[in-house]
Amino acid sequence: MALIEAQEITKIYRLGDIDLKALCAISLSIEEGEFIAIMGPSGSGKSTFMNIIGCLDKPTSGLYMLGGADIGGLNRDELAAIRNKKIGFVFQGFNLLPRTSAIENVELPLLYNGIPAAVRKKKAAAALKTVGLEGRENHHPNQLSGGQQQRVAIARALVNDAPIILADEPTGNLDTKTSAEIMKLFVKLNKESNITIILVTHENDIALYSRRIIRFLDGCIVSDGSVEKP
């Protein structure tokens, strides 16, 4: 059984009288431990697809199975619980809580999982160590560089031992050198911890860090193939 199984997923936005078809019958399966890059121009439906995969949004029709369970019939709070336990998010704009220390940002998913304070601290510190931010636990986001902020976000995605990381243009706000560092971190997490990583990107050289590239256009998948590693 695949980790992520999408069958005939469509998404239609209703704008007044016009129906806007954002996704046209997408079928896709992703195995555990894959590293996937999703590419495509703006408005191609890749973000909509990511939102559905990330349980932030529901498909208009079609079946979405995550870890063998049907997500379709779940309510808001049940989806929140799935996001909390199964999915770690990394965003282009980092999306850390301002005026809140790095370790407290990382603790956030644990907080909503009812983990006791002592365990929270330990796990958050360990996650920060994994992303190479040991010693910066008490720095606030505005005291950290962009790359460091993105590492905090990755630590937050890791801390609940989620099997999937969804990264929406994680290097979009970073320079080339820092981007490479972040991508190497993803590769390492994928290899060493067998975390399934799905990332959205515009850039070819970023996509090349993955092992499978899916291209979207006008709400449909136009190509899906593995990356030839030199």
């Binding site: 929140a80 998010f89 999306n95 909503y112 999982n113 609940n160």
Partner: peptide
């Protein structure tokens, strides 16, 4: 609003 979005994304429920 954005903070609320972040909290929801990482698993905050309605009553949280």
């Amino acid at each position: 609003t954005r903070e609320i979005g972040i909290r929801m994304a990482v698993g905050a429920k309605t009553w949280d």
